[in-house]
Amino acid sequence: MNSEKVTKNLLFVASIILILLAAGMVLTLASGSIPVFEKFGIQFIWSNKWNPTAGREQYGALPFIAGTIITSVLALIICLPLAFSASLFIGEFYKGTFFAKIIGTMVDLLAGIPSIVYGLWGFYYLRPMIVKLGLNAQGFGVFTASIILAIMIIPYATSISTEIISLVPNHLKEAAYSLGATRMEVIWNVTVPAARSGIIASYILALGRALGETMAVTMLIGNDNHIPKSIFGIGNTMASVIANQFGEAEGSKLSALIAIGLLLFVITGLINAAGKFIIKKLA
């Protein structure tokens, strides 16, 4: 074999390792989940009972699936007007100016703050505000976690949509202006429709981020193993229950946590695939 073949084979082997890695991850999570599914059946997914007391053990993932979806969707809703405004600020209103650079850099900085620091800040600064507003006595809960999550996903929701908005061709916008449209009318009728799929894709990817966030949520959501009673109630997400209960987990409980990890992996994978699919269609 010549050197070219050796090198190409080596690169190919590297790609095989990646496949093995991904396949191994899925298989490991799946086999780790088997005990809980054997014991409680497929109902594990939609059962809302979570009772680790020895002898009366019962596990169901529903409270955490519900908690994850509620917190993430609420975070996305809070994030939307902020991220959309920032995208318009950077990619349309002040495109290419010093102000746009400042806002853009600040938004990028948000992505650099570790999850645990968001958790601390939420605990010591945001939580007291929630208490003051009387939304929740201790300030913990879905709403508090969602606000922190919303802040955390802003850079993901902003990055692609800003780029796509700034790429909407000038001659289209000028055509609308030449018909007498105001800037707001141009944005809603020309810019946003032209950039629509890119904007949607970036919000889907941001949602994918929110689903898997762990530390900040764990520190703020209240860690209660029931379906949240309202958006100001306490709860747990799939990621936060794993972080929270893993330390003392054995047997069925460990298997239940692994199964929740598997479900989380599948859900985020599907959401991300949807986002990537839209981006691919765009290109």
Binding site: L18, M25, L29, L211, L264, F265, N272
Partner: peptide, 20 residues
């Protein structure tokens, strides 16, 4: 596609894998 899936995987799940 696999790379994208890995990139989207929540870090806590990667912790579970490394544990197992």
């Amino acid at each position: 596609d696999i790379t994208d899936i890995l990139q989207g995987a929540p870090s806590i799940v990667l912790g579970l894998i490394a544990y197992l």
